[in-house]
Protein backbone atom coordinates (compact mmCIF):
# COMPACT_ATOMS: atom_id res chain seq x y z
CA UNK A 1 0.00 0.00 0.00
CA UNK A 2 2.91 2.30 0.63
CA UNK A 3 3.88 2.07 -3.02
CA UNK A 4 0.89 4.20 -3.82
CA UNK A 5 2.49 7.23 -2.29
CA UNK A 6 0.57 10.07 -0.74
CA UNK A 7 1.38 12.39 -3.59
CA UNK A 8 -0.56 10.79 -6.31
CA UNK A 9 0.79 12.60 -9.30
CA UNK A 10 4.40 12.09 -8.53
CA UNK A 11 5.57 13.70 -11.70
CA UNK A 12 8.04 16.45 -11.15
CA UNK A 13 7.43 19.04 -13.72
CA UNK A 14 10.95 20.04 -14.53
CA UNK A 15 11.32 21.29 -18.00
CA UNK A 16 7.85 20.45 -19.18
CA UNK A 17 7.11 23.43 -21.32
CA UNK A 18 3.56 23.73 -22.50
CA UNK A 19 2.70 25.01 -25.91
CA UNK A 20 -0.80 25.04 -27.26
CA UNK A 21 -1.73 23.16 -24.11
CA UNK A 22 0.40 20.32 -25.33
CA UNK A 23 3.63 19.48 -23.62
CA UNK A 24 6.63 19.53 -25.85
CA UNK A 25 9.03 17.19 -24.17
CA UNK A 26 11.61 17.52 -26.88
CA UNK A 27 11.65 21.26 -26.62
CA UNK A 28 14.35 21.02 -24.03
CA UNK A 29 16.09 18.03 -25.45
CA UNK A 30 19.80 17.88 -24.96
CA UNK A 31 22.20 16.34 -27.45
CA UNK A 32 22.63 12.59 -27.14
CA UNK A 33 24.53 11.82 -23.97
CA UNK A 34 26.31 8.70 -23.04
CA UNK A 35 24.37 8.44 -19.81
CA UNK A 36 20.85 7.83 -21.12
CA UNK A 37 18.52 8.65 -19.47
CA UNK A 38 19.71 11.87 -17.92
CA UNK A 39 16.25 13.24 -17.27
CA UNK A 40 12.65 12.15 -16.86
CA UNK A 41 10.91 10.27 -19.62
CA UNK A 42 7.55 11.71 -20.68
CA UNK A 43 4.77 9.22 -21.22
CA UNK A 44 1.63 10.18 -23.07
CA UNK A 45 -1.44 8.37 -21.85
CA UNK A 46 -4.26 8.77 -24.37
CA UNK A 47 -7.00 8.19 -21.79
CA UNK A 48 -8.37 9.97 -18.75
CA UNK A 49 -6.47 10.25 -15.53
CA UNK A 50 -7.61 7.76 -12.89
CA UNK A 51 -8.67 5.16 -15.46
CA UNK A 52 -7.42 1.61 -15.93
CA UNK A 53 -4.46 2.65 -18.13
CA UNK A 54 -3.38 5.20 -15.53
CA UNK A 55 -3.44 2.63 -12.73
CA UNK A 56 -1.55 0.03 -14.77
CA UNK A 57 0.99 2.64 -15.87
CA UNK A 58 1.68 3.61 -12.26
CA UNK A 59 1.98 -0.01 -11.17
CA UNK A 60 4.46 -0.84 -13.94
CA UNK A 61 6.56 2.32 -13.78
CA UNK A 62 6.84 2.07 -9.99
CA UNK A 63 9.21 -0.84 -10.75
CA UNK A 64 10.51 0.23 -14.14
CA UNK A 65 11.81 3.54 -12.81
CA UNK A 66 14.23 1.67 -10.53
CA UNK A 67 15.59 -0.35 -13.44
CA UNK A 68 15.83 2.71 -15.72
CA UNK A 69 17.01 4.96 -12.92
CA UNK A 70 14.70 7.78 -13.96
CA UNK A 71 11.14 8.92 -13.41
CA UNK A 72 8.32 8.40 -15.86
CA UNK A 73 6.19 11.48 -16.11
CA UNK A 74 2.64 10.88 -17.34
CA UNK A 75 0.69 13.39 -19.42
CA UNK A 76 -2.96 12.63 -20.01
CA UNK A 77 -4.44 13.44 -23.39
CA UNK A 78 -7.85 11.80 -23.53
CA UNK A 79 -10.31 12.20 -26.38
CA UNK A 80 -11.48 10.76 -29.67
CA UNK A 81 -10.90 7.17 -28.47
CA UNK A 82 -7.19 7.75 -27.99
CA UNK A 83 -6.65 9.67 -31.23
CA UNK A 84 -5.76 12.93 -29.46
CA UNK A 85 -2.96 11.30 -27.46
CA UNK A 86 -1.38 9.64 -30.48
CA UNK A 87 -1.59 12.81 -32.59
CA UNK A 88 0.08 14.76 -29.79
CA UNK A 89 2.78 12.13 -29.36
CA UNK A 90 3.55 11.77 -33.04
CA UNK A 91 3.17 15.43 -33.88
CA UNK A 92 4.61 17.31 -30.94
CA UNK A 93 7.26 15.14 -29.33
CA UNK A 94 10.81 14.83 -30.57
CA UNK A 95 11.84 11.26 -31.47
CA UNK A 96 14.69 10.99 -28.98
CA UNK A 97 13.53 8.12 -26.73
CA UNK A 98 12.71 10.62 -24.00
CA UNK A 99 9.04 10.32 -24.73
CA UNK A 100 6.81 7.25 -24.99
CA UNK A 101 3.14 6.54 -25.36
CA UNK A 102 1.26 4.05 -23.20
CA UNK A 103 -1.54 2.85 -25.40
CA UNK A 104 -4.06 0.08 -25.78
CA UNK A 105 -3.09 -1.83 -28.92
CA UNK A 106 -6.54 -3.36 -29.46
CA UNK A 107 -9.08 -0.53 -29.82
CA UNK A 108 -6.53 2.12 -30.72
CA UNK A 109 -5.09 0.22 -33.68
CA UNK A 110 -8.61 -0.67 -34.83
CA UNK A 111 -9.24 3.07 -34.86
CA UNK A 112 -6.58 3.48 -37.56
CA UNK A 113 -8.25 0.80 -39.67
CA UNK A 114 -11.52 2.72 -39.48
CA UNK A 115 -10.03 6.17 -40.07
CA UNK A 116 -6.34 6.71 -40.71
CA UNK A 117 -4.58 9.21 -38.44
CA UNK A 118 -2.59 12.17 -39.78
CA UNK A 119 0.70 10.29 -39.29
CA UNK A 120 1.93 7.06 -40.86
CA UNK A 121 0.96 4.17 -38.60
CA UNK A 122 4.27 2.45 -39.22
CA UNK A 123 6.09 5.44 -37.74
CA UNK A 124 5.72 4.08 -34.22
CA UNK A 125 6.49 0.73 -32.66
CA UNK A 126 4.90 -1.01 -29.70
CA UNK A 127 7.04 -2.81 -27.13
CA UNK A 128 6.86 -3.84 -23.47
CA UNK A 129 3.30 -5.14 -23.56
CA UNK A 130 2.12 -5.29 -19.97
CA UNK A 131 -1.24 -7.02 -20.11
CA UNK A 132 -3.70 -8.79 -22.38
CA UNK A 133 -7.38 -8.68 -21.48
CA UNK A 134 -9.47 -10.75 -23.90
CA UNK A 135 -12.93 -9.73 -25.05
CA UNK A 136 -15.90 -11.85 -24.04
CA UNK A 137 -19.63 -12.36 -24.60
CA UNK A 138 -21.77 -11.91 -21.49
CA UNK A 139 -25.38 -11.49 -20.38
CA UNK A 140 -27.07 -9.91 -17.37
CA UNK A 141 -27.76 -12.17 -14.40
CA UNK A 142 -31.47 -12.24 -15.27
CA UNK A 143 -31.06 -12.99 -18.97
CA UNK A 144 -32.96 -15.90 -20.49
CA UNK A 145 -29.86 -17.04 -22.37
CA UNK A 146 -27.99 -19.78 -20.57
CA UNK A 147 -25.30 -20.77 -23.08
CA UNK A 148 -23.67 -19.41 -26.23
CA UNK A 149 -25.71 -21.97 -28.20
CA UNK A 150 -28.91 -20.29 -27.01
CA UNK A 151 -27.58 -16.99 -28.31
CA UNK A 152 -26.50 -18.39 -31.67
CA UNK A 153 -29.76 -20.25 -32.29
CA UNK A 154 -31.82 -17.17 -31.34
CA UNK A 155 -29.53 -15.07 -33.57
CA UNK A 156 -30.44 -17.29 -36.49
CA UNK A 157 -34.14 -16.49 -35.93
CA UNK A 158 -33.83 -12.71 -35.43
CA UNK A 159 -31.12 -10.03 -35.30
CA UNK A 160 -29.99 -9.79 -31.69
CA UNK A 161 -29.03 -6.44 -30.20
CA UNK A 162 -25.49 -6.59 -28.89
CA UNK A 163 -24.21 -3.85 -26.61
CA UNK A 164 -20.57 -2.91 -26.97
CA UNK A 165 -18.48 -0.08 -25.62
CA UNK A 166 -17.80 1.08 -29.19
CA UNK A 167 -17.75 -0.40 -32.67
CA UNK A 168 -13.98 -0.25 -33.30
CA UNK A 169 -13.21 -2.57 -30.41
CA UNK A 170 -11.69 -6.07 -30.37
CA UNK A 171 -14.75 -7.50 -28.62
CA UNK A 172 -17.00 -6.09 -31.37
CA UNK A 173 -14.78 -7.72 -34.00
CA UNK A 174 -15.06 -10.98 -32.09
CA UNK A 175 -18.83 -11.06 -32.18
CA UNK A 176 -18.93 -10.00 -35.84
CA UNK A 177 -16.61 -12.91 -36.61
CA UNK A 178 -18.91 -15.24 -34.67
CA UNK A 179 -21.87 -13.99 -36.69
CA UNK A 180 -19.95 -14.54 -39.90
CA UNK A 181 -19.01 -18.06 -38.84
CA UNK A 182 -22.40 -19.24 -37.56
CA UNK A 183 -24.75 -17.23 -39.72
CA UNK A 184 -26.39 -15.68 -36.67
CA UNK A 185 -27.40 -12.03 -37.04
CA UNK A 186 -25.96 -9.58 -34.54
CA UNK A 187 -26.77 -5.88 -34.48
CA UNK A 188 -24.00 -4.01 -32.68
CA UNK A 189 -25.18 -1.07 -30.55
CA UNK A 190 -22.39 1.13 -29.13
CA UNK A 191 -23.12 2.20 -25.56
CA UNK A 192 -20.13 4.52 -24.98
CA UNK A 193 -17.89 2.88 -22.41
CA UNK A 194 -17.60 -0.23 -20.31
CA UNK A 195 -19.82 1.03 -17.48
CA UNK A 196 -22.78 1.58 -19.79
CA UNK A 197 -22.16 -1.72 -21.56
CA UNK A 198 -22.38 -3.67 -18.31
CA UNK A 199 -25.53 -1.67 -17.48
CA UNK A 200 -26.97 -2.51 -20.92
CA UNK A 201 -26.65 -6.22 -20.19
CA UNK A 202 -27.73 -6.09 -16.55
CA UNK A 203 -30.88 -4.03 -17.25
CA UNK A 204 -31.73 -6.38 -20.17
CA UNK A 205 -32.02 -3.51 -22.65
CA UNK A 206 -29.58 -5.45 -24.84
CA UNK A 207 -29.97 -9.13 -25.67
CA UNK A 208 -26.36 -9.55 -24.63
CA UNK A 209 -23.13 -7.56 -24.61
CA UNK A 210 -19.46 -7.86 -25.51
CA UNK A 211 -16.63 -6.22 -23.63
CA UNK A 212 -13.10 -6.77 -22.40
CA UNK A 213 -13.43 -9.48 -19.80
CA UNK A 214 -11.57 -7.57 -17.05
CA UNK A 215 -14.57 -5.25 -16.74
CA UNK A 216 -16.96 -8.20 -16.71
CA UNK A 217 -14.99 -9.88 -13.92
CA UNK A 218 -15.37 -6.68 -11.87
CA UNK A 219 -19.14 -6.77 -12.31
CA UNK A 220 -19.04 -10.14 -10.51
CA UNK A 221 -22.46 -11.77 -10.05
CA UNK A 222 -24.30 -9.10 -12.01
CA UNK A 223 -23.21 -10.79 -15.27
CA UNK A 224 -22.67 -14.27 -16.71
CA UNK A 225 -19.98 -14.92 -19.33
CA UNK A 226 -20.74 -17.15 -22.32
CA UNK A 227 -17.72 -17.02 -24.61
CA UNK A 228 -14.15 -15.73 -24.56
CA UNK A 229 -12.26 -14.41 -27.61
CA UNK A 230 -8.91 -15.95 -26.76
CA UNK A 231 -7.17 -19.26 -27.21
CA UNK A 232 -7.68 -20.11 -23.57
CA UNK A 233 -9.98 -18.88 -20.82
CA UNK A 234 -7.19 -18.03 -18.40
CA UNK A 235 -9.65 -16.45 -15.96
CA UNK A 236 -11.45 -19.77 -15.49
CA UNK A 237 -14.16 -19.58 -12.89
CA UNK A 238 -14.06 -15.79 -12.76
CA UNK A 239 -15.52 -15.90 -16.28
CA UNK A 240 -17.87 -18.77 -15.44
CA UNK A 241 -15.51 -21.25 -17.16
CA UNK A 242 -16.89 -20.02 -20.47
CA UNK A 243 -15.44 -21.74 -23.56
CA UNK A 244 -13.26 -19.91 -26.06
CA UNK A 245 -14.60 -19.21 -29.53
CA UNK A 246 -11.76 -21.05 -31.26
CA UNK A 247 -12.25 -24.16 -29.08
CA UNK A 248 -15.99 -24.23 -29.23
CA UNK A 249 -16.59 -23.26 -32.84
CA UNK A 250 -13.32 -24.43 -34.35
CA UNK A 251 -12.48 -20.99 -35.71
CA UNK A 252 -9.01 -19.47 -36.10
CA UNK A 253 -9.76 -16.02 -34.77
CA UNK A 254 -6.70 -14.15 -33.47
CA UNK A 255 -7.00 -13.29 -29.77
CA UNK A 256 -9.22 -10.22 -29.41
CA UNK A 257 -7.35 -8.40 -26.70
CA UNK A 258 -7.35 -5.09 -25.08
CA UNK A 259 -3.57 -5.02 -24.67
CA UNK A 260 -1.66 -2.20 -23.01
CA UNK A 261 1.86 -1.61 -24.26
CA UNK A 262 4.36 1.21 -24.60
CA UNK A 263 4.94 2.80 -27.97
CA UNK A 264 7.90 4.74 -29.29
CA UNK A 265 8.68 6.74 -32.45
CA UNK A 266 10.30 4.50 -35.06
CA UNK A 267 12.66 7.38 -35.81
CA UNK A 268 13.86 7.21 -32.17
CA UNK A 269 14.48 3.48 -32.51
CA UNK A 270 16.48 4.05 -35.71
CA UNK A 271 18.47 6.96 -34.33
CA UNK A 272 19.09 5.54 -30.85
CA UNK A 273 19.06 1.74 -31.01
CA UNK A 274 21.01 1.57 -27.74
CA UNK A 275 18.36 3.53 -25.92
CA UNK A 276 15.58 1.36 -27.30
CA UNK A 277 17.53 -1.71 -26.31
CA UNK A 278 17.79 -0.39 -22.78
CA UNK A 279 14.07 0.43 -22.63
CA UNK A 280 13.21 -3.11 -23.70
CA UNK A 281 15.64 -4.86 -21.39
CA UNK A 282 14.73 -2.87 -18.31
CA UNK A 283 11.03 -3.18 -19.16
CA UNK A 284 11.30 -6.95 -19.17
CA UNK A 285 13.21 -6.81 -15.89
CA UNK A 286 10.51 -4.64 -14.35
CA UNK A 287 7.84 -7.09 -15.47
CA UNK A 288 9.76 -10.02 -13.98
CA UNK A 289 10.47 -8.09 -10.79
CA UNK A 290 8.75 -9.87 -7.88
CA UNK A 291 7.39 -6.51 -6.75
CA UNK A 292 5.40 -6.10 -9.96
CA UNK A 293 2.76 -8.66 -9.04
CA UNK A 294 2.14 -6.81 -5.81
CA UNK A 295 1.89 -3.45 -7.56
CA UNK A 296 -0.31 -4.91 -10.31
CA UNK A 297 -2.74 -6.44 -7.81
CA UNK A 298 -2.89 -3.19 -5.88
CA UNK A 299 -3.79 -1.35 -9.07
CA UNK A 300 -6.85 -3.63 -9.20
CA UNK A 301 -5.40 -5.66 -12.05
CA UNK A 302 -6.35 -9.29 -12.58
CA UNK A 303 -3.02 -11.11 -12.36
CA UNK A 304 -3.65 -13.85 -14.98
CA UNK A 305 -3.99 -11.00 -17.50
CA UNK A 306 -0.51 -9.63 -16.80
CA UNK A 307 1.27 -10.84 -19.89
CA UNK A 308 4.60 -9.55 -21.14
CA UNK A 309 5.15 -9.15 -24.86
CA UNK A 310 8.15 -7.89 -26.79
CA UNK A 311 8.42 -6.02 -30.09
CA UNK A 312 7.64 -9.15 -32.12
CA UNK A 313 4.45 -10.10 -30.27
CA UNK A 314 3.28 -6.50 -30.35
CA UNK A 315 3.93 -6.16 -34.10
CA UNK A 316 2.04 -9.38 -34.80
CA UNK A 317 -0.90 -8.20 -32.76
CA UNK A 318 -0.88 -4.77 -34.40
CA UNK A 319 -1.00 -6.27 -37.86
CA UNK A 320 -3.72 -8.76 -36.84
CA UNK A 321 -5.84 -5.88 -35.59
CA UNK A 322 -5.30 -3.90 -38.79
CA UNK A 323 -6.27 -6.92 -40.84
CA UNK A 324 -9.43 -7.60 -38.84
CA UNK A 325 -10.32 -3.91 -38.94
CA UNK A 326 -9.98 -3.88 -42.69
CA UNK A 327 -12.08 -7.06 -43.02
CA UNK A 328 -15.00 -5.66 -41.06
CA UNK A 329 -14.54 -2.06 -42.12
CA UNK A 330 -17.97 -1.69 -43.78
CA UNK A 331 -19.68 -2.83 -40.58
CA UNK A 332 -17.55 -0.56 -38.43
CA UNK A 333 -18.00 2.57 -40.52
CA UNK A 334 -21.51 2.11 -41.90
CA UNK A 335 -20.19 2.78 -45.40
Amino acid sequence: MTKLTMKRRSFIKTGAAAAGGLMIGGGLATPALASYPDRNIDVIIPTREGGGADRLFRAFTSLWKNHMNTNFEPGFFPGASGRVGYEVYMGKYKPDAYSLIFGNMGPEVLNWAVKAPSFNIDDYIYFNRVDTDPGCVFVGAESKFKTIDDIVSEGKKRALNVGTSRLAHPASIGILALGEHTGAKFNLVPLSGGKNTVAGAVTLEMDFCVLTSGSVIKAADACRTMLVFNDKNVAGEKLDNAPTMNDYFGTKLPAMFSARAFGIHKAAVDAHPDRFEMLQKTGKKAFDDPGFKDAFLKSKGFWPYANYGGVKECAEFKSAMLEMGERFKPLLTGK
Partner: peptide, 15 residues
Protein backbone atom coordinates in the same frame (compact mmCIF):
# COMPACT_ATOMS: atom_id res chain seq x y z
CA UNK B 1 -4.33 19.88 -7.66
CA UNK B 2 -1.16 19.73 -9.76
CA UNK B 3 -2.96 21.00 -12.81
CA UNK B 4 -0.84 21.14 -15.95
CA UNK B 5 -1.24 24.91 -16.32
CA UNK B 6 1.29 26.76 -18.46
CA UNK B 7 4.45 27.35 -16.49
CA UNK B 8 6.74 30.32 -16.73
CA UNK B 9 9.42 32.15 -14.82
CA UNK B 10 7.51 32.37 -11.51
CA UNK B 11 6.45 28.72 -11.43
CA UNK B 12 9.93 27.48 -12.22
CA UNK B 13 11.57 29.72 -9.63
CA UNK B 14 9.05 28.66 -6.98
CA UNK B 15 9.53 25.02 -7.90
Amino acid sequence: FETRLPEGFIEKTLQ
